[in-house]
């Protein structure tokens, strides 16, 4: 285990996965009007499990947990992006990214406190 994963635990991998998922959801929103575009997303829990407990890298975990979104209603042009779904998940992902950031912030200030011996 390297220093970063010792120090940050699960949160380092979680932040990277959240950021990758942000790009994926942004792609879905960008392609909301492209015919035949198939929306994709990652199963976050599975990806995090693969990246941490199973010890695979973030890249491999990402590939292993990516899937296609099943639309609630199919559209005539073959596009599977449903904007309301994507926007909700995007907002949720952004919020959880912030949560992970504050966990990391907490970890960093704890270590800084220990280092300074205050």
């Amino acid at each position: 285990m390297d220093v970063a994963s010792d120090l940050f635990g699960v949160h380092g991998a979680a932040l990277e996965l959240r950021s990758q998922r942000l790009a994926m959801l942004a792609s879905n929103i960008a392609n909301a009007a492209t015919p035949n575009y198939k929306a994709r997303d990652i199963d976050f829990d599975k990806a995090l499990d693969l990246a941490t407990s199973k010890g695979q890298g973030v890249g491999k975990a990402l590939a292993g947990a990516t899937g296609y979104r099943v639309p609630l209603e199919s559209s005539l042009d073959g596009n599977t992006v449903e904007l309301n779904t994507e926007q909700t998940i995007f907002a949720e992902n952004a919020m959880k990214y912030r949560t992970t950031l504050s966990f990391l912030q907490g970890r960093i200030s704890t270590v800084m406190q220990a280092l300074k011996g205050e």
Partner: peptide, 11 residues
């Protein structure tokens, strides 16, 4: 669609 890597694409 312009695909960069799996799951990441622009238009």
């Amino acid at each position: 669609t312009v695909t960069d890597r799996p799951g990441v694409a622009t238009v």
